[in-house]
Every structure is written in structure tokens, then in C-alpha cells.
């Protein structure tokens, strides 16, 4: 099934509209938080520039992963799923190709937002932290790619994009990617800390302080990944 994976990878990197949307928007938001608005006191601006950089890189990349579902929904309404159903490609092969290509396709948006942090936000970090951030943020999008796939097989055409827009917003805000969870009321904060977006963000936030991901973060992300992946495979089979 490698030939189909190669095709999906090429498609992921050949989609200029998607790349601009998912890198341009987080970069613009990043500059808004750190350069235009006064979100934090003057003496914490440096920390916030780094924190927000990680938040926005996570935000953009998880959006890219979620919106794999939009492409799937479109392909389904145009009958590509029907074509695939008469090829030897199994359900699992298709889902894996979508997952891998979707996750690979978010790499540019991570790199661009981190570059914006370094060049425009004045973020200074130990050299090793930068590749570590890319890798950690990247790993964090895996469950969202699976969730996107599940949505792509549940809804068709534009409906999937609208629904994911909502899910994207709720997960991002709940996960403290727009504003830190520290400003949330206690019950919401507890909920937030078990949400996938918060734990995805925590991978990068902790790396800023030179810390490893917590066991909770790894466990929570793994659980969400398994759940969403199972959901995606189930929806794919139902959709045939």
C-alpha cells in the first residue's frame, strides 16, 4: 500500500491553500498575542513569547491534522471512496495513508511558527530545544489526525469542514492554546488537563524549560489516539 501513501504525501505537500491557511493564521495570531495586545505584564513578556510560540505552533498543526477529514469528506462525496473500494487497498491501508500524510503535512506549519518566534518574537532557546520542539509538537498532532479521519467518514462535503471548525475551536480554547489554562476556573481547568490539545501543548511547553513530557501527557495522548483511531477505522468501514 506504499504507492498510495506516496500519492497522499505528495498531495499533502502540494496543497498551497491549506499550507497558507494553517501557517499564516497561527503566525498572525502569534503576532497579535505578543506584539499588539498586552496579554501579560512587562516582566513576563519574554516567557510569554516562547509559551505562545509553542501554543500557536501546536494550534496550527493540530488544525492541519484535523482538516484531513475535510479532504476525506470531499473525496467521499465525489465518489473516490467507491473507486478505492474496488482496488486491493484495504480500509486500514487507506486510513494509515491519510494519517501519515496528514501528520507529515503539518511539519511546514510547525517550522514556520517556530521561525516566527525566533525571528520576530525574539525567542532565544538552547540550540537542542528547537528540533526537540518540532518533534514534540509534531507527535502531539497524531490524535487530531485520527479524529479528523473519523469526522471525514461521518459527515460529507462541507458539513465535515463546518463541524471540524467547531471542534477545532473548542479543543484549542479548552486546551489552553489561545489563553493559558492557568486563567481558567478550577473545574474547567481539570477538564482541560485531560483534553488532547492541552496535553499536546504540554509537550512543547515543558520542553521550553528543558523538561521531559509527563507520564500523564503520554498516557492521555496515547488514550486519545487509540480512541480516535478506532473511531476512524469504524467510520471508514461504515461508510463503504
Amino acid at each position: 500500500m506504499r504507492s498510495y501513501l506516496r500519492l497522499e504525501l505528495r498531495r499533502a505537500f502540494r496543497n498551497p491553500a491549506g499550507l497558507i491557511l494553517l501557517t499564516g493564521f497561527p503566525v498572525a495570531l502569534y503576532l497579535l498575542w505578543t506584539k499588539v495586545l498586552n496579554v501579560v505584564p512587562q516582566n513576563q513578556q519574554g516567557d510569554f513569547a516562547a509559551f505562545s510560540m509553542v501554543s500557536m505552533a501546536t494550534y496550527g498543526s493540530l488544525g492541519g491534522a484535523l482538516f484531513i477529514g475535510g479532504a476525506i469528506a470531499l473525496e467521499r462525496s465525489k465518489g473516490w471512496a467507491r473507486q478505492l473500494a474496488v482496488t486491493p487497498l484495504p480500509a486500514s491501508g487507506y486510513v494509515v495513508a491519510k494519517l501519515v500524510s496528514g501528520v507529515a503535512g503539518v511539519l511546514p506549519s510547525i517550522v514556520v511558527v517556530l521561525a516566527a518566534g525566533a525571528l520576530l518574537g525574539g525567542v532565544r532557546l538552547p540550540l537542542w530545544t528547537w528540533p526537540a520542539l518540532v518533534a514534540l509538537i509534531w507527535v502531539g498532532v497524531v490524535p487530531f489526525a485520527a479524529l479528523g479521519i473519523a469526522f471525514g467518514y461521518t459527515l460529507k462535503g462541507q458539513a465535515a469542514n463546518l463541524a471540524m471548525m467547531g471542534v477545532y475551536f473548542v479543543l484549542s480554547v479548552l486546551g489552553g492554546l489561545w489563553l493559558p489554562v492557568q486563567v481558567m476556573p478550577e473545574p474547567m481547568r481539570v477538564l482541560a488537563e485531560y483534553s488532547p490539545a492541552y496535553q499536546a501543548g504540554s509537550l512543547g511547553w515543558r520542553a521550553l524549560d528543558g523538561q521531559w513530557p509527563t507520564g500523564t501527557a503520554v498516557g492521555v495522548l496515547a488514550a486519545w489516539t487509540l480512541l480516535f483511531a478506532a473511531l476512524a477505522v469504524w467510520r471508514y468501514r461504515r461508510a463503504l
Binding site: 504507492s3 502540494r14 473507486q83
Partner: peptide
């Protein structure tokens, strides 16, 4: 799944953003 059958369906869709050669080659590879 075994690859013994090739099918042309009336209502099958194609990937519009993909060049013909790439599409054929991806399917052949299955």
C-alpha cells in the same frame, strides 16, 4: 483485495488535484 479484479464504475470519483500519471501509478502499485 487479492487484485484479481479491475473495475470501472459509472459513479466512481477521481482525485481532481492529482495528475493522471500519478493516479494510475498509485493504483497500479496496489
Amino acid at each position: 483485495r487479492s487484485g484479481a479484479v479491475g473495475v470501472l464504475l459509472q459513479d466512481a470519483g477521481l482525485l481532481e488535484d492529482v495528475p493522471v500519471g500519478e493516479l494510475v501509478s498509485a493504483v497500479a502499485g496496489m
